[in-house]
Amino acid sequence: MSALTVSALRKSFGGLRVTKDVDLNVEPGERRLIIGPNGAGKTTLFNLITGELSPDSGSISLLGQDITNVPSRKRPHLGMARTYQIITLFARNTIVHNVRLALLGLSPLRWNPLMDLKHQGHLTEQAQEALKQVGLAQIAERPLSQTSYGERRRVEIAMALAQKPKVLLLDEPFAGLSIDERQDVQRCLMAIPRDVTMVMIEHNMDVALDFADRITLLHFGEVIVEGTRAEVVNDPRTREVYLGH
């Protein structure tokens, strides 16, 4: 059984076809890298997989279950989590509250209007644990407005990890980071155990090659090449896409 399967997925905006019959099959525990130049339709593909957009045709299944028509808000409950390329955090709150919100999203407690959230010790503990994984446990109580860009990237990852996903989708987790910060993030990602399947988008090929078991090259919404690291890097079509003409 695959962790994530996408078949014959199509999406157009107006006349523009941004996803053209995309097939994707990711095995459990696999690290998959999706590369492609800007405008290749990578983020759109993620939005289709997470259900933030609905496809015109095709199907998506998660751990063998067809989720094509499952509303996006239910997909995290089935074991799917994502990070955003454009940081999407709760700027008024502390780091730990951001992660707590991620945990609460999967807990039936989220409907409770009477309890004091701060007294839910287990949520805070789990949040701290996730923050430890990304090396932010010491500054958990810091307001998000007083954190650096690199720290925010790691908060994004901590929020996804806190949900204990089976499939983790990472949308350009290195975007906008300095070399040092990039290494921090890389360490976090490398430390994630193999029971989590990971799919990462990156437009800069060099950044994330070490990460990948297999690579899918996307161009103008179409899968051009798919294979192992070596296969894709050495494929002439890859050069064509990246070097042009």
């Binding site: 933030e52 919100l101 999203g105 989220r110 009477l114 959230l117 929020m159």
Partner: peptide, 26 residues
Amino acid sequence: IFARSPLGAALMGTRDQPRRMNALGY
């Protein structure tokens, strides 16, 4: 009580980042 509760926190979350809240399972 409501403002401190999980539901209250969730409501404030939907004010600040509705799309994210949806993606987090709310």
